[in-house]
Design a protein around this nucleic acid. Structure first.
Lengths: 208, 208
DNA sequence: TAGATTGTTAATCGATTAACAATC
DNA sequence: TAGATTGTTAATCGATTAACAATC
């Protein structure tokens, strides 16, 4: 009974979560689909359908949904309860920023190791140990880590990607501005700054 | 004749650009829609339609498109030639990472100022001057800057957002995990790590 | 000429929205 | 009870894909 969920819904879920948590922090116990729809500028039916997909309890007519229940349901659905272990490759400015970000665990991901080609001697960034590149394949394999974060310059991104896959990595979060070539079974999520900038610039032009 | 372009196409454009530039670097002069489609795992017709939306020259049967022409067309469309000025608010780890990233200008954005509440005395990060928060409104107004980047902790994000809008900012690139409330005419683009993680975790689960 | 590739028209698919009966 | 809100079925809308004639 693993319902396959539309990608757009998946994108909205974390946003629902943010809105719902804000409402809860403001002292509310129940929420209606129109409350959420208004905060997020969405259609109420869309909200109801999305929530129906992830929760097993129905909302109550004339009352809405219990905030804490729906929050728990979304978190469970997104896997925020089962922590996935990840490694990061590349500990430059961006890598450090990601390592310093305290909030990832909250989202079900824990960066337990970092690798960098300049790490002649192991060191730590924000308590995460950083090892030399050359130990990467071995360590990832032994620890059965599934998620790899690529935060290296674009020239070496494909190469790092290949190594990660050879080490058994199943999902890649790519911050390098390149189109990585991977086998079908590996999932790549591009954190593409260029894509964001494209959207921003175009909306700005559109509205002026 | 400002064609309104589907958002999905807009998202794909920077990726086309990456693929096309790689091909050019490999010494190619022409590209066919099937080459691109294969590299990006898309349908060839989709590629042709996307490219048709942004280029004014037609492709040539039995030959494809001239690489340099289509690259130029996409770049022009995405506004990479007209540089937009931006400010960044919050110069912590993330803010520094963004300021250190050399590549933004290439994408038509130039972060010309930063603001931080700890900047008692102005300083620079990677040659960008950082001023104290309190001078923000004044400076942004005088310089007619349109894009604001929010890289502050989530508790103060909404407040910073309000100030940016009061200063005349028209587009916001938000890295804080909150749903910002803004007037309709302001465009917000959320760089939502939680959203990315949601997609990654779910794909990982789906495939196991 | 034959073949590869194009752009376009029509068909399909999926996501969003509208309409509405059910119910706390 | 009346009203607000729900979930569901049908309609709409838009994006993707299939089919195909045109052409270098």
């Amino acid at each position: 009974m693993v319902k396959s969920i539309p990608e757009n819904t998946l994108r909205r879920l974390p946003q629902y979560l943010m809105v719902l948590k804000t409402l809860r922090a403001e002292g509310n116990y129940y929420v209606s689909s129109s409350d959420i729809a208004e905060a997020m500028q969405l259609n109420t039916v869309l909200v109801r359908k999305d929530l129906a997909l992830v929760s097993h309890e129905n909302g109550k007519p004339n009352q809405g949904r219990e905030l804490s229940t729906i929050i728990k349901d979304i978190e469970a659905f997104l896997g925020y309860n089962t922590i996935n272990e990840a490694v990061i490759v590349g500990v430059g400015m961006l890598g450090r920023a990601l390592l310093s970000y305290q909030g990832f665990k909250e989202y079900g991901i824990d960066i337990i190791l970092g690798f960098d080609e300049n790490a002649e001697h192991p060191y730590t960034v924000n308590k995460t140990p950083i090892y030399h590149h050359k130990t990467m394949r071995n360590l990832i394999k032994r620890m059965h880590i599934q998620i790899g974060i690529i935060a290296v310059p674009k020239k070496v991104a494909q190469q790092v990607c290949d190594e990660l896959i050879a080490s058994g990595i199943k999902a890649i979060w790519n911050f390098a501005p390149v189109n990585l070539e991977v086998p079908r079974e590996v999932y790549v999520h591009n954190e593409n700054m260029a894509e964001s900038l494209a959207l921003i610039a175009s909306k700005l032009k559109e509205r002026s």
